[in-house]
Amino acid sequence: MYQLSGVTKRYRRGKETVRALDGVDLIIEDGGRLVIQGPTGGGKSTLLQMLGGLDRPTEGRVLLDGTDLATLPEARLTRVRAEKIGFVFQGFNLVPTLTAQENVETALVPLGLKTSERRERAAEALVSVGLGERRGHLPGELSGGQQQRVAIARALVKRPAVLLADEPTGNLDESMRDEIMDLLEGLWEENGLTFVMVTHDTALARRAPRLATIRKGQVTIREQVVG
């Protein structure tokens, strides 16, 4: 479970100080699904980075299962990311020189698994996203949708508690968008993950039971009825 209290993040941009998050209080239950929406520069990605332990707040606490990610030493924070959090990015962020299988394996490297187990789990993850036949392909040999599937497999192969997705369909066309969203929602339900997604897309935002709208660093939560 996430518990954010008074989370503030300030950046220096030239001579100006930008307040990306301004005293955000937020609770996300285990297995919950939250969509974050808001205008560009409103602080959506910053909030996601706080949740993912990729950045630290200037003030406030980010508790994940009782552990404050804001004050955790770097090595332990890295460990939390390696074990508990899966990321899916808008630009897929696959290593271009590694095959689909090897890209998925990169998420298991920090866990110190045996090579055989690592390979087996990566292959299974690719099968689960429908890319079992494409595991030897390089990212450049795959379509955008396929690349995002590889990225999803990479995020889930470690069996995380949390899946964080930053505009996962932002680079995909409409049909591919639905396909990926169906996949993510299916995996969320299947694995009981806590799923937080940032999106600009209102149609996608409507599919989540909770919607967090962020403007000028402040968050408003709205419960939705999913049809």
Binding site: R81, E83, F87, N93, V95, A107, V109, P110
Partner: peptide, 16 residues
Amino acid sequence: VREFGTLKALGWRSGR
């Protein structure tokens, strides 16, 4: 930079 940033996000230590 994106490649290494992603690896760090996946839990790769700086040393690795």
